[in-house]
């Protein structure tokens, strides 16, 4: 079980969090033209990298904040955790 450092609450076990996928995906802006390709990329297409991955988790049984976690998908090492509004 992973040990994730919530930037708001501190180190907590994985079972307090829920996974939210790739954190680098940006939602296309509202009321703007979006090509089919860009929209499909946003909705469906995700990379499955081996190694470093910046991903979203929500501290669902804690402060309910969405956070960013930089994790190695191979070794599960966590390099960094960030608040929702912080960049790597």
């Amino acid at each position: 079980m992973l040990h994730i450092k919530c930037p708001h609450c501190g180190l907590r076990s994985q079972n307090e969090f829920s996974y939210g996928g790739d954190a680098t995906v940006k939602r296309p802006e509202l009321n703007k033209e979006v090509s089919d390709k860009d929209w499909d990329n946003f909705v469906y297409l995700r990379k499955s990298p081996r190694g470093k991955h910046l991903e979203l988790w929500q501290h669902i049984s804690g402060c309910r904040q969405w956070i960013k976690v930089e994790r190695d998908t191979l070794t599960h090492e966590i390099f960094k955790t960030l608040k929702a509004n912080e960049e790597v």
């Binding site: 079980m1 992973l2 040990h3 076990s13 599960h76 966590i78």
Partner: peptide, 8 residues
């Protein structure tokens, strides 16, 4: 009996 991630 088991050694899991993050020293659990």
């Amino acid at each position: 009996f088991g050694y899991y991630d993050h020293n659990m």
